[in-house]
Design a protein around this nucleic acid. Structure first.
Lengths: 209, 209
DNA sequence: ATAATATGAATGAATACTCATTCATTTTTA
DNA sequence: TAAAAATGAATGAGTATTCATTCATATTAT
């Protein structure tokens, strides 16, 4: 088992090939839309042959499911990383998570387009809903718990962690939509200012100007 | 020969048929998704025959464009109506508009699914983007101007109308997504509370608890 | 080490199927 | 009766899927 320092492009490990096809799928969905992305497009984008997707994923439906799972996992990884790396206080963590949602690596128009392509089919494809819902639950729970912590720490009245986490999560998702629809008009900095103003007005002690 | 009223009657019939087909299209998109809605489905939903869509809309693309235009128009009508009917102050108007976005007639899961289906194709279909962007511009401008008015009236420091209108619009759009993905978990009342808490914390003078 | 064999990844032409569109015909309206 | 509207079978373009074959690499035999 010597002499394999260099892999030719002809064969790759199963995992590598699958990832390559998932990447190609996301590119195609961003460019052509979910409806008009064909298996031929995906194979072409990956520089491979017609039948390759069925070889590795069995069916188009399965490829799309796996692509959404990948998207969700990728986000979860970034989210967890931002959570761990930030701190030490709850305010710092919350701010880091909001910043992540508006950072170029997450809020990239091509990637957002892929998320929306899947969301657009959520109602008719329960499996997409399941994947997204599980992802959201994880996210919401952590944000809500950070809000609870801040409420407990500060002397905040008349606010509930649930309402605030709902507002925060909704806000960033809504900003993704603005980026998708009005890329020219959308301004990352203004979006971050909107979030900061919100945090300041809700938790003035933790988020001074 | 001297019958001028007949032409109106024919036109009305034609409009009715078109509207019937647009309604059927929205139902199909909500149920089956945009990708798997066929012209046969639409015709069937409307209780008409195979070729009927091409007769009235010339092409499937055109049918979808018109459907999105209808959605946008319908929303604009409700928005304008809520704006006119409410008042007299800017705070009342703003609150009425936010309430509209979370009201059952707008925030209905089937309707939201149709919006998301179109948003999912925005990146790859510039015409959808154009329609949505125009609609958003109108909405944003009015909300921003209401925020400006409140800022001028009150003694609010360190906030900008642009950031607040961005946050408000994003928030409701993000809540639509929650309703789509987690219909069981989503709570209209909690959503309204989140908006009210936000308005109170930003404009305490105008939105007391 | 070299040759022979086995493995399974990759190909791409062929197949089976879906669906938008057309159009000859029928039905309805004025 | 003439014009408009609607029908639904036929068409044909496009596409997911299959599969016999090719090819690169790994394994085994000599």
């Amino acid at each position: 088992m010597a002499t394999t320092a260099k892999k030719t492009s002809r064969t790759a490990t199963r995992e590598k090939r699958r990832q390559q096809l998932i990447d190609a799928t996301m590119k195609c969905i961003a460019r052509k839309g979910m409806g008009s992305t064909t298996l031929g497009d995906v194979a072409g984008e990956a520089g491979l042959s017609q039948g390759i997707v069925n070889l590795h994923f069995e069916s188009k439906d399965n490829l799309l499911n796996e692509t959404l799972r990948y998207l969700a996992d990728e986000y979860k990884t970034q989210f967890s990383h931002a959570y761990e790396k930030s701190g030490p206080g709850a305010a710092d963590k919350l701010h880091a998570l909001m910043k992540l949602d508006l950072s170029p690596s997450v809020l990239d128009r091509r990637k957002v387009a892929v998320w929306f392509a899947f969301w657009g089919e959520v109602k008719s494809r329960p499996i997409y809903r399941d994947i997204c819902e599980k992802s959201d639950e994880y996210y919401d729970e952590i944000v809500r718990s950070l809000c609870s912590q801040l409420i407990a720490e500060g002397d905040y009245k008349n606010i509930t962690a649930l309402a605030i986490s709902t507002a925060l999560a909704s806000m960033t998702n809504g900003m993704w939509l603005s980026c998708l629809i009005s890329p020219k008009l959308f301004d990352r900095q203004n979006a971050m200012i909107a979030v900061d103003e919100y945090l300041h007005s809700i938790f003035p002690e933790h988020f001074p100007l």
